[in-house]
């Protein structure tokens, strides 16, 4: 008998069966309905407020559609502000019981006794989460564009649509980070509640505490001793670099540049560097993209790293409970 060293067949055998089953589960689950309703209410509320605000004040704006996402009307924050909160929650809700749930229902042994590899199961679950997230966000995006058309009566320009689509893509990939994180915890912890709490703890850490820690670290590592501008600059640059380790910072900077064409830089700009620039003039789309490209690749890289970690852990896991 020939004994080959490689595994037979494709690791993706059965991938789509897993994806469709998981998506069907997600889209019918009570958990998703609640989160969808929450996102929908947020979208309608903030965009309605923004639209009424925009009608009164900046009717000559070139980028009205984008303003719908970013305009805050007291006491409501802007839609993007809400989204930075909601997307991680939705992503975590989609994945925190992905693997341990199969163990707890005793379906894992039966599932892996089917002619598929573990690769297909794990990647299928991740993809299903990502597609579900994309589906939900696209629905809301379309709703907002529609509301903008009705509320403002101005059709959006091509560049506006392109920018808001990029915003959509960035948001989905931002969700991918939290999806991969929750997936890792669903492999590590046998109890879904523990996995959910761990994911939310990481999210809280980056949302609330990371900013404080960054400030303290920057003050400690780059202290301002005699008050030179270069000292302040060094401290500020370190703080910025550290804060960009958080996916939240990467996401908020990226959508800021994407939704506000007037943003020309996401770092520190010295007066010398502004020589000859017309302040407030919008950047073309490709320049804005070039500005956020490191952020985008950063988000994707974190997702891939987390998924790879989960993959390694899952491959080594014993099936017997």
């Amino acid at each position: 008998m020939a004994r080959s060293k490689v595994r037979e067949g494709s690791p993706w055998t059965g991938l789509w069966a897993v994806v469709f089953k998981e998506m069907a589960d997600h889209l019918t689950s009570a958990r998703m309905l609640i989160l969808q309703a929450l996102t929908l209410i947020t979208a309608v509320g903030t965009v309605y407020a923004a639209a009424s605000n925009l009608r009164d004040t900046v009717a000559q704006d070139r980028f009205l559609l984008l303003r719908l996402f970013t305009t805050a009307q007291q006491p409501l924050p802007a839609f993007v502000g809400f989204l930075a909160f909601l997307v991680p929650l939705i992503a975590i809700a989609l994945a925190f019981d992905a693997v341990n749930g199969e163990f707890n229902q005793h379906t894992m042994a039966r599932l892996l006794a089917q002619p598929i590899y573990r690769d297909a199961l794990l990647f299928g679950k991740f993809l299903a989460g990502l597609f579900t997230l994309a589906l939900v966000l696209t629905t809301i995006w379309l709703l907002i564009v529609g509301m903008g058309l009705v509320g403002l009566g101005v059709p959006p320009g091509g560049e506006e649509v392109a920018r808001s689509l990029w915003f959509l893509v960035l948001t989905v990939f931002y969700g991918g980070v939290w999806l991969a994180l929750a997936l890792v915890f669903s492999i590590t912890f046998r109890q879904p509640a523990t996995a959910a709490l761990a994911s939310i703890a990481v999210w809280l850490f980056f949302t609330v505490f990371w900013g404080i820690i960054v400030d303290l670290l920057a003050q400690f590592l780059r202290p301002v001793r005699i008050g030179l501008p270069s000292e302040y600059l060094a401290q500020g640059q370190l703080a910025l670099m550290l804060s960009r380790l958080s996916p939240n910072t990467l996401y908020s900077e990226a959508i800021l540049a994407m939704l506000n064409p007037a943003v020309r830089s996401l770092g520190f700009v010295l007066p010398i560097q502004l020589d000859g620039a017309i302040l407030g003039a919008p950047l073309p789309l490709d320049q804005s993209l070039a500005l956020i490209w490191p952020h985008f690749t950063g988000l994707v890289a974190v997702t891939i790293l987390l998924f790879a970690l989960g993959y390694t852990l899952f491959q080594r896991q014993e099936i017997r409970a």
């Binding site: 379906t107 042994a109 590899y117």
Partner: peptide
């Protein structure tokens, strides 16, 4: 060989585990 040809083995062999679970 189940370690090298798991897909062929698992498509021909049925397995009823001790803790048998379904999606309720």
């Amino acid at each position: 060989d189940p370690a090298r040809q798991p897909l062929s083995v698992k498509s021909r062999v049925g397995y009823l585990p001790e803790l048998l679970g379904f999606y309720n």
